[in-house]
Design a protein around this nucleic acid. Structure first.
Lengths: 200, 200
DNA sequence: GCGCTAAGGGAACCCGAGTCCCGATACGGG
DNA sequence: CCCGTATCGGGACTCGGGTTCCCTTAGCGC
């Protein structure tokens, strides 16, 4: 009943690492260009120049591969803004989200990864971890603002950051509305207004 | 070059309609139970008790089938609340969203349909139409509120409704946070506070 | 370096989704 | 009520994703 260790976990260096790198690269490219439903492990093996057997053994399903890619992405966290005022910080956050989701490669990649998370529990958990990292990073803007007296005590930092991104993702996924800088500024302003009103 | 008419559009009555009904029913069940990546037309044909050829001829791809299901769902629009105050109306809207997304069948179905929209352009457009209908319906709450003087003139009704749903969908898709009635009330309060502050 | 063994890779195999062909069925206009 | 044809449905076929087997390569502990 003892579960065998994950392939690649005992000798993770050298060749094994190179294979993972090549496969995640190929997976990212395919997801960005063709979407999650086109993520086919046999084709990934071909484009990555890796044995088909290897990909099936280490990842097994498209969902698990997407999950691994998400974990890989979560490790590379970008630093948040520190402009000195919440207005600016939240605006920068909103613009960064718009810039990311509008970027041809990144935008498609994020859509594909969200699709993956909706099709596979493993990918879903990886996605939630990914956003938890990002939100915690930017939540610092809000805690700083509370300390500076720009926002009321008791404000939930993560919730404010979530309120900035939420309408942007809603536009991307649900309504298909265009993601402009104007939309970003509006999202930031909305979240800020609610925070100032002391909601939460 | 003249495109042949869509199969099922010339004689849409009787048998053809029954086939569509059975297939959409089976598709909805499969999407709710197994997700979009498990939507396999051969299996749909089997469970719907319909010829495999028929399903491939009329829909062709899982994405197109999901799109048809979305159009079918968009036709059945629910009436919005009319409590007499924006607070209550927005709260009812938020609670309805939470109730829908929390419901075992509906919740999974919506997730699957969003996944479909992220994998297929046809499904994406159908999803955007679907949400446009829902948002327009509920936007009436906001226009009424503006007329009653509860919200400032120049308030964008659709945007307010979007701001109610957005954090709830963000919780569902991005963070995986639980969707409680408390979250619903908070979402409604946030959107209301921003609208009162005159954002937009 | 050396050897043990984890991990990779080639090749044959299986099975079912997707396609094609053609006859059966039943709308719906006259 | 009857005919023309749109649509359905059964069955054979193909093709490639996913699996299995087994040999080769190369980490990494000593």
């Amino acid at each position: 009943m003892a579960t065998a260790p994950q392939p690649g976990s005992i000798r993770p260096g050298g060749r094994t690492a190179r294979v993972r790198e090549a496969v995640l690269q190929a997976a990212g490219d395919t997801l960005a260009e063709k979407g999650f439903d086109a993520l086919d492990l046999a084709e990934i093996a071909r484009t990555a120049g890796v044995g088909k057997t290897t990909v099936y053994r280490r990842w097994g399903t498209p969902g698990a591969l997407a999950a691994d890619l998400l974990d890989h992405m979560a490790e590379q966290s970008l630093p948040r803004a520190r402009t000195g005022s919440v207005d600016k910080d939240l605006q920068e956050n909103a613009r960064l989200v718009v810039k990311t989701l509008t970027d041809p490669r990144q935008g498609h990649l994020f859509k594909a990864l969200i699709a993956a998370s909706l099709c596979n529990e493993q990918a879903a958990q990886a996605l939630h971890r990914f956003y938890a990292v990002r939100i915690d990073e930017w939540a610092g803007c809000v805690t700083d603002a509370v300390e500076r007296g720009e926002l009321p005590h008791g404000t939930d930092p993560r919730r404010v950051i979530v309120n900035v991104s939420a309408p942007l993702y809603y536009a991307l996924l649900n309504t298909g509305e265009a993601l402009t800088d104007e939309a970003a500024d509006r999202a930031a302003a909305t979240a800020l207004a609610a925070a100032r009103a002391g909601v939460g």
